[in-house]
Design a protein around this nucleic acid. Structure first.
Lengths: 400, 400
DNA sequence: ACTATTCGTTCAGTGGCCGAACTAATACGC
DNA sequence: GCGTATTAGTTCGGCCACTGAACGAATAGT
């Protein structure tokens, strides 16, 4: 009970900071005395800090302003992706206090070498946290593949060539323990959450976040929470069928979206595929995408046409998704963020054509603010949000 | 606080009846003394009844068995559909205590006449409730169209020819008031809920309920709740794009599912469309569907082929839906329930072809147990579930 | 300075849950 | 038949956390 009210107060402080105790009482419906007691505990836990006085009305005693204390709890976000590794520290207020990206092709590398390098990045991040006086509450690792939340194992990450990896266990063996431990998440999912908490999603309601990487991933956000599905595999927008007689896909089907609108398909259409290197130079931070953007900026017709074709396929798939999910907005993330200016117009035209009752509910198309950083920020946010949701664990027993 | 624990206890009783107080305590984590007090109030409110004794273990005093008291609160479910009107009374235990269906074509009828007849059905149902000693807690009306939950108006019901009808207001003017009043819902949505609560859905996790009527509607159930979407229009499976170059649809797009797998399309393929009457004889309780089933049972090749073609289109759309939502099961409801035996095999084959990672998560295909009755039962259930969720309103103050 | 006003704390009061002790009802063993 | 063990349900005192009112604190206006 107190546990929940602590979370309620903390949520109000997080959302409307800077805010006085009296305003918190008004916003929560609790009495001033209750808020006073709860705030005292949150101050003691170091999650909230007082920030001087502020007069609100014309007369009367000024209130003491409260705000989240960023140092009180930070989350360590880690990402093992196809062509880079990344670590970041996000504090309670959402600020990124540390960020380190290593561009490296992990497709052909030894799995253990990748894990060791990721652990090294994590240790550097923890050292940076200690230096800045930050309390690390926990960690979250994002991987482009299917993860099992209960066993904390990577079931399958095709683009990394991983199958059944006890990722959390192996990191835990190397890293110092944290109060909340280490969790594991799908990269597209935490990217959607990153966008929700720290990017374009803050202004939006329900949305679908589409990550255009080598594959096309998706994260569905409903009521401020991730929609995971029965097997934790919801959001596989890349395999929506856009042409039942289209090319075969590695998933076994035909005409899947990612075969005709993924980065490989776009680059091939634009004539940019490096035949010798195969797909190896293609990725959110790879050269292929940068080359494409350069051509688009130069107005090269073939590149523009390639993106438009992809946009129309994407539009057909997202129209179906919209008819089923009725989201408020669609967010173009990952590699699609860079292509946003060229994708938007044909995409919106296709949506208008295929969304039922499009006048009433055609979703807004929004370009990601975080791009490829969304996953790390979302992973760090997984930790800090957990702290905000259940601060009780960090509050010293009221007796002491 | 007590409010919530009342609901917790009531939920456990509902789910595991018959159950003793001690078992409720074990299931909820509350102490025996707390449960005892809460149960006393629920007994006084008439929502729960004692049903004699039952010995649970080998030794010891037998427990007093508790169960929901059906008469304690019943919901009035109403449905205004294209070719029938219906009213039903569902009690707290889920039993249907009264059911009345009037087959009538409402497409060409005057709107006020339809509303008057629906109100008449409601009054007959209320009279039946009084006769049986049932306490009517509230009512819910299901309509095949877009409804606005806040204004309680039917925004648009194309198949009925309705636009902006203050349905609840007009019924409230005629019917006696109830504690929970009258609510308004989309027919496909409450059909999904009906199936969840009283039909095949009881055994399932998350599922998508597909109603094959004149159009194809859908209801998405996640975590035991309806997924509504940002504008309350989620689940429009009928307008998933299965062929971007297919026939035009009234929604403005091309290749929508319901143009190639709706009842009209199936009947046309099977050669059953009545050219003179147009679509007028087609519907969940209409003759067209019965004729088709008769031909299917006789093994007529053209009819079988028509259903198979529709099933394949349906499979493509549902595969996309599955990739995005990752449901546990797909439920064939409405008119599709009658076609289940012929739809299933080609549908499942298509799903296997197009669902990504189909070995791991291909959803079960389940035929509705309620068919066209799902909506009325779901509407009645909306009321009884509301009672179960917040029993506090029905409990007399503990002082008296 | 004095008043009006708003902020935050203190303190008794209260509602509801918990735990322990108690009564009730049954099976089993002798 | 009767005591013992076991389980069900109730009663009662204690405690935790929120409430409401009163009080001290800080400021603007007069």
């Amino acid at each position: 009970m107190r546990e929940r009210n602590l979370a309620v107060v903390l949520a109000v402080v997080a959302e409307r900071a800077p805010i006085t105790r009296a305003q918190v009482a008004a916003a929560t419906g609790l009495t001033k005395s209750s808020v006073s007691g709860l705030v005292t505990e949150l101050l003691a836990a170091g999650l909230v800090a007082e920030e001087g006085a502020r007069r609100e009305g014309d007369r009367g005693r000024p209130g003491t302003v409260l705000a989240l204390r960023g140092e009180g709890a930070v989350g360590l976000g880690l990402e093992a992706n196809v062509d880079y590794l990344a670590a970041g520290l996000g504090d309670l207020t959402g600020r990124l206090r540390y960020h380190h990206i290593v561009t490296v092709d992990n497709r052909e590398r030894d799995r253990d070498a990748v894990l060791a390098e990721l652990a090294g990045l994590a240790q550097q991040a923890l050292a940076a946290a200690a230096e800045q006086g930050l309390t690390v509450a926990g960690a979250c690792v994002a991987v482009p593949g299917v993860v099992d939340a209960t066993t904390h194992r990577v079931v399958r990450a095709p683009n990394l060539g991983w199958t059944d990896v006890a990722l959390v266990e192996r990191l835990a063996a190397v890293l110092p323990p944290t109060p909340l431990g280490t969790s594991l998440e799908n990269e597209a999912n935490v990217a959607a959450l990153g966008e929700l908490w720290f990017g374009a999603g803050r202004e939006l309601g329900d949305f679908v976040h589409v990550s255009g990487e080598v594959g096309i991933g998706g994260g569905i956000v409903v009521d401020g929470e991730l929609f995971r599905g029965s097997h934790g595999m919801a959001g596989e927008i890349g395999h929506v069928v856009v042409d039942p007689d289209g090319p075969e896909c590695s998933c076994g089907g035909r005409g899947c979206l990612e075969r005709v609108a993924g980065q490989e398909a776009i680059l091939a259409l634009a004539g940019l595929t490096d035949r010798r290197g195969g797909q190896r130079r293609v990725g959110p931070r790879g050269r292929g995408l940068d080359d494409l953007v350069a051509l688009l900026e130069a107005g090269q017709p073939r590149a523009v046409a390639a993106v438009q074709t992809a946009a129309r396929h994407l539009g057909v798939a997202l129209a179906s998704v919209t008819n089923v999910l009725d989201p408020d907005s669609l967010v173009l993330g990952g590699g699609f963020a860079a292509l946003g200016p060229w994708l938007r117009e044909p995409l919106e035209a296709t949506l208008q054509r295929h969304v039922a009752d499009s006048g009433r509910r055609r979703p807004r198309v929004v370009v990601s603010l975080l791009g490829a950083d969304a996953a790390v920020r979302g992973a760090a946010g997984m930790v800090t949000r957990a702290v905000l949701a259940s601060p009780g664990a960090f509050v010293v027993s009221h007796g002491g």
